[in-house]
Amino acid sequence: MNTTPNAGLSHPLVVAYLDDLERALSSADQQERVDTLASVREHLTDALAGDAEPTTKQVRAVLDELGSVEQIAAAATPAVATPAVANPAAATPSSPLPASTLPASTAPSSTAPAETKQERAWVAPALLAASIVSLVIPVFGALMAIGCIVTAVVLLRTGAPRRNFLHGSIAVSIVALIINAVLVLGSLALFTARSEVSTVSGGPVPSIASYAPAP
């Protein structure tokens, strides 16, 4: 949720501070980076809300109380580099909070990003398989192929693993769409041709028996 634009946030010192903070948090856990940037903006909005045009002195005082961007970045958990770590807190000894203080019941949520990535590893091969199946199913295969393309594009944009499978799925799905389009157009053309023959002759096509030579 965004806050209403605030005069204090457009002060050059605040703009520079927020830019520096974003850079300083570049190697922090993604969720913490997003949350921290949003929260610091809210903090500044609140702290500078009383003045329509805060003076540089007031802005400096608020920024001094917030602390340096390096101090804030040091308080954030570094991003987990290796996937599927059982306990990221244990893998980040520089974390200001000891791992032992984390309640056991909260462990699953703290490992969510790594686990999510690992869990999604099977999605790309499954998507490729679905694309191949869509090749041999007429008409409904086209719907499947469209679904596969959309899913693959979304997964590619969210940084899912096994990108080769996703690219393959898109390619196979496009082929399935082309095959289905050819089938549908071919059927329509055939149907149209038959209708035209019926219209021209004014009735049903005579049977072969009617051309049989007279005895």
Binding site: S39, L66, A75, T77, S109, S110
Partner: peptide, 19 residues
């Protein structure tokens, strides 16, 4: 708390932990 800004990464973690 000596630097108020250091509260926010902590709040993010507490939220992630469900506390």
């Amino acid at each position: 708390l000596t630097s108020e800004g250091t509260l926010y990464p902590l709040l993010s973690r507490l939220r992630k932990q469900g506390l």
